[in-house]
Design a protein around this nucleic acid. Sequence first.
DNA 1: GTTGACATGTAATTGGTTACATGATTAG
DNA 2: CTAATCATGTAACCAATTACATGTCAAC
Lengths: 173, 173
Amino acid sequence: MSLRHALLGLLVDRQGSGYDLMKLFETSLANVWPATQSQVYGELGKLADGGLLAVAAEGPRGRKEYSLTESGLAELRHWLVDVEPTRVHRSDMLLRVFFLGALTREEAHTFLVKEQLRASQDHDAYEDIKEKIDWGDDMISVNGRIALEFGLRLSAMREEWAQWAADQLTVPS
Amino acid sequence: MSLRHALLGLLVDRQGSGYDLMKLFETSLANVWPATQSQVYGELGKLADGGLLAVAAEGPRGRKEYSLTESGLAELRHWLVDVEPTRVHRSDMLLRVFFLGALTREEAHTFLVKEQLRASQDHDAYEDIKEKIDWGDDMISVNGRIALEFGLRLSAMREEWAQWAADQLTVPS
DNA sequence: GTTGACATGTAATTGGTTACATGATTAG
DNA sequence: CTAATCATGTAACCAATTACATGTCAAC
């Protein structure tokens, strides 16, 4: 149930339509919590029904501008403070690693080299974001920097690990 | 659709019932791809219907022992070699980071310190596994070690990052 | 004979993805 | 006038979670 909280969070220091929030999503939260258009519109409706959001204004083309209510902010804060983040993270990449023995050594090696490349590309992409985005001083910009640093460290780690893992295969015990 | 491949993978160098596979899951794959009992039994049925698995033997208590077929192995290898691993990984922890501005500085600091602690505990748990599990030489043991190393490096990274992030809050720009 | 491990399944619900469908407004 | 952007929604499907339901066999 994190999407609802993502939407509440985006509405803390701004007000916006589903369309606005979708665009914000793409340029910020999509890396940690992807969502589709249908999901966003659906969830906004439910949040408004539940009184966590209010329709602050209606514009052209049926545009509905949402704003956070008292109870919406309370729910967000409750989620941040009291709800434990999920422990396990699914990774189909690591799942594959378990079964690399079903491939030839060359194929397994290729798999790990590709992962190393992906990690390296991800790292580059994060570096790009760090340089090119002009960071505002709003909440998601300030804290987005902290999250971005995680991405940078993670991709660096993945690259080193994949290198190490590929070496393990090349020189077996 | 990774669960099907997880099951195919487990059946590469052994043969087993849903019950057996569940137990194997818990002690190996659960960290990278959790699955429930109902999911496992359901998926095994579908895989058998599709000819990727065969019922090799039937035992007491309705026990059905599955084995990998030719086309099952082919499908596994295809997934390993040709299907790109998922790019984005959801993290409700990082999602929360974006919204830390909705908390007081103390609350936000506490959140990051708790994350540091979780990472540290995860690291300890992985160290424990590394020491205590007696590793066989079967496929999932050999490659499980490679995956475990990822867990160790990731938890170390998370711990350092959380420490850094907590410091960022304490001494603001 | 009773407890615990073995063993399999179904049903209801939720969250997420993909595809489809429609239409208004603005800028060139 | 026409293309791009704005704007919202529905429907079908799939994967995963939770809870329920049932029953067997072995060991003590």
